[in-house]
Design a protein around this nucleic acid. Structure first.
Lengths: 169, 169
DNA sequence: ATATTTGTTCAAATTTTATTGAACAAACCG
DNA sequence: CGGTTTGTTCAATAAAATTTGAACAAATAT
């Protein structure tokens, strides 16, 4: 088992480096840390699945980062566990999900929906608070604004399924 | 001119506090700093335009933060300068843009488009690099992947105008 | 059972980002 | 003009997010 595998190569070559940079930038826009961009990026440009240990060695990141990063990527549905080289090996290997639909779906489910939902609740309470305002003029204004917030959230909620539908090829 | 104006009230009351919290959370999702959420939030819940100095006093933030925050919000088209109380006063007053279409448009223009555009360029170069790969098998794989990246970017680019259209009421 | 491999957790260290505040500039005023 | 108000800039500081690495657990091997 001391045979060199593809994933065991140590060095990051120039095209790999550029791909990593693209994904590090990409995930930053989504509010995710660089390590996650590197992990997904390396999986994306690898022809065979990689293990946690491969990621640690090739990206020179800590086991902790690799473990947490993989967890997040799994929760987003952005990486899949494979049975590696097929035979019964303990070590887990990972490959990227490359369908945009799936990636966007996972991101919406994990990162957008929860915010929309908690926002909806907060805005509901806001409306209740607003209606307790004594000054009628002020109350009218507050209700107008909380109503507008409510509309924003609703529009956001309607938009998400459309986005997913449009990206479903 | 020592008369107390609405914007000169010092304390943040409970409904205002909740609105600020909603916007601080909201802008965080967009990758913007809390101070920007507070500034926009206070403008959003104010019945009259506020000056930079009002923001500093009521939010207890520094002049620097308020100035930079307003600059960002202006660039996003999220706040408008008004002529304040109408008469010829030097101090600038600000009011929020509350149309979702406008807010989303500004965000897309300032924060999304630039990333998409730079991504497009990087991916173009990536494709060039990939085609210099010697190993034909590897080259085929790299071109396949860079092509997929290119598709992602194209789909993203097509999506944005749709989002704007859908949010245009 | 003991040793080894694989992976997780989380407090501490590091790195990055946001905020402050003081120096500066520009516009107005008397 | 000198003084005041309004706002910007940016280096220093504070705060927050990320990464590390060592301790731990669980699974497998010997």
């Amino acid at each position: 088992m001391q045979e060199l595998q593809d994933g065991t190569r140590q060095e990051i070559d120039s095209i790999e480096r550029e791909v990593l940079a693209v994904f590090v930038d990409g995930v930053r826009v989504l509010g995710l840390p660089p390590s996650i961009g590197e992990i997904y990026g390396l999986l994306f440009i690898s022809q065979s699945p990689l293990s946690l240990d491969d990621l640690v060695k090739r990206l020179k990141i800590s086991k902790g980062s690799a473990s947490q990063g993989l967890r997040t990527l799994k929760s987003l549905g952005a990486v899949r566990e494979t049975n590696g080289n097929g035979n019964g090996e303990r070590r887990a290997y990972y490959e990227p999900a490359v369908e945009l639909k799936r990636l966007v779906g996972g991101f919406i489910r994990e990162q957008i929906r929860p915010h929309l939902d908690s926002g909806r609740h907060k805005i509901k309470r806001l409306g209740d608070l607003a209606s307790t305002e004594n000054d009628p003029k002020r109350r009218k204004f507050l209700l107008e604004r909380t109503d507008r917030l409510d509309h924003w959230i609703r529009n956001g909620g309607r938009l998400l399924p459309m986005i997913q539908r449009i990206l479903g090829q």
